[in-house]
Nucleic acid binder design. Sequence first.
RNA 1: GCGCCUGUAGCUCAGCUGGAUAGAGCGUUGGUUUCCGGUACCAAAGGCCGCAGGUUCAAAUCCUGCCAGGCGCACCA
Length: 564
Amino acid sequence: MKERLEKLIAAAARDLFSIDTSTKLTRPDENFGDYATNVALQIAPQLEKTPREIADQLQLKLTETLAEYCNNITIAGPGFINIKLKDSALWDQAKAEFARTASGQKIVIEYSDPNPFKILHAGHLYTSVVGDAVANLLDSTGAAVHRVNFSGDVGLHVAKTIWAILFYESDGKLDSDIAWQKVQSLADKPLEEKSNWLSGYYIKGNAAYVDDQNKAKDSINDFNQKIYKIFEVNDHNSSLAQIYWTCRGWSYGYFDKFYERIGSHFEKYYPESGTIELGLKTVREHIGDVFKESDGAVVFNGEDHGLHTRVFITSQGLPTYETKDIGLLIEKWQDYHFNRSIVITANEQAQYMAVVLKAIEQFAPELAKASQHITHGSIRLQGNVKMGSRLGNIIRATEVLDSVNEANTALNGKKDDRVVLGAVKYAFLKQRLGGDIIFDPAESVSLEGNSGPYLQYAYVRAASMLSKTESDTLPADNLQADERKLLLKIGEFQEVQGRAVNELLPHHVCTYLYELAQTFNQFYEGNRVIGNDREAIRVQLVRCYARTLKTGLELLGIPVIDKM
RNA sequence: GCGCCUGUAGCUCAGCUGGAUAGAGCGUUGGUUUCCGGUACCAAAGGCCGCAGGUUCAAAUCCUGCCAGGCGCACCA
């Protein structure tokens, strides 16, 4: 509807003044109209007329050409043209489906990216929720969306953890047989406990590495190579390898359980270990033309492109994250032949990723061009304090869910995981991507006001009403003011979804859904539906509203509830 | 030091492809229930939109400088 009107207005301007405009319609204050355009103000200078004169001429013309959709076109202020839609146009708009703008396209979206052997913290919860919402948005455009997950199953953090297990379980002797016995003895423990056990050793290993206790640094670097070696020779038998594979399995098992709890689903996991060979091969092939050797390492000279210079292969001959990311992108390409590849991470990776993509651009420009990196802020504690495992103030992902569960149970006397998820996801998504999120376990996730449960409750009300009626008549004209206001708001959804997709910003959907639910709650207060003599029309309206709210909540990955 | 991001009400944030009186939630104060589910609704108080210039008929929005905070800058991920 909006695009149609914009085209008609552009056509009118062309007819009247032989001028091309690219003016967009906006949603003005409800007192002015349903749509507004400032086209008269914009073209006035070049036509050397007053905006008011132009607006007058346009008003006459548009009253004619927009007659099918609009019944009132007025001029206000310095020359704004305000348009009021017919009720029938409002109904059409409210019932429209999403435009399938990316139908036939393949999109690979990678997000969440947890590290085995390390803690799954609040930041992982946040990035997962964001990724789900962005993927859902893309899905709504008709594209085939493939959700994948990249996880660091090799690398220094793994060496730190394994080293610490060996060191502390065998009294500093680094005896893998003794450590393996310990690992086996934990077999029957719950996944959560195993995961905590591992992340505890990561913290110890990291501390030892940083402080270089007991010459730990060299020793850990040595273990790093040993772990890469496990993959090189496909070792599943040595006690070190058994410790590695067993603990790795615990981590992945724990991730699966977590994703199930929050409703995330990945089509494929790409472990870093699987990207090494392809990454190394690719980088080595391009030593000379893209990469160069420097101090025994292989680097990409980002400074030539206004970026940082980064190491791709260390002087030990090991691939860094950079090289793994190259292998990963090529592997994704081989798997999917995507039109678009999107990676979501925290802000701190932004400039790093720019270097990797610039390097790829040198030898595979089409891959780099199809790739997009979007980033978000991190979770910070009250008082703008950063979380960090070494600071001992990490909030586990499950702690966030548990604390909200506690608050919700206290509020209404019973536990409901759907409401907890609604509250947490909405709290994270309602903020524009990019900035940090200040998280206070006690207060940040609200259950009232602008919150997930508010939306869920606003749906419950409508669902409850609809269960009490059989009414199924067609919509009618001559809407009353409150009815019209609600229908107008419902009709805004397509525009909001379009904008959220274009900008890959889910918070637009949150903002809109909250306004929509607010409009509905206001309508609900003042207008009886069931048993009213306008029941037929109002039931149609409520159906339309409920459908819109449900679709919106689904885009955000928030559970839709009939009764709560 | 260089680069990127951020600065809007007491707090947490929308608004930033320039437009009409700068919005919401929480918190504070005061109201609303014979009636479809009160996790609701209504109202009040609360703003040099970080500061200073510039562009424009029009700037929270665009440009420049400064101040404050965050992130990144070679063998971690």
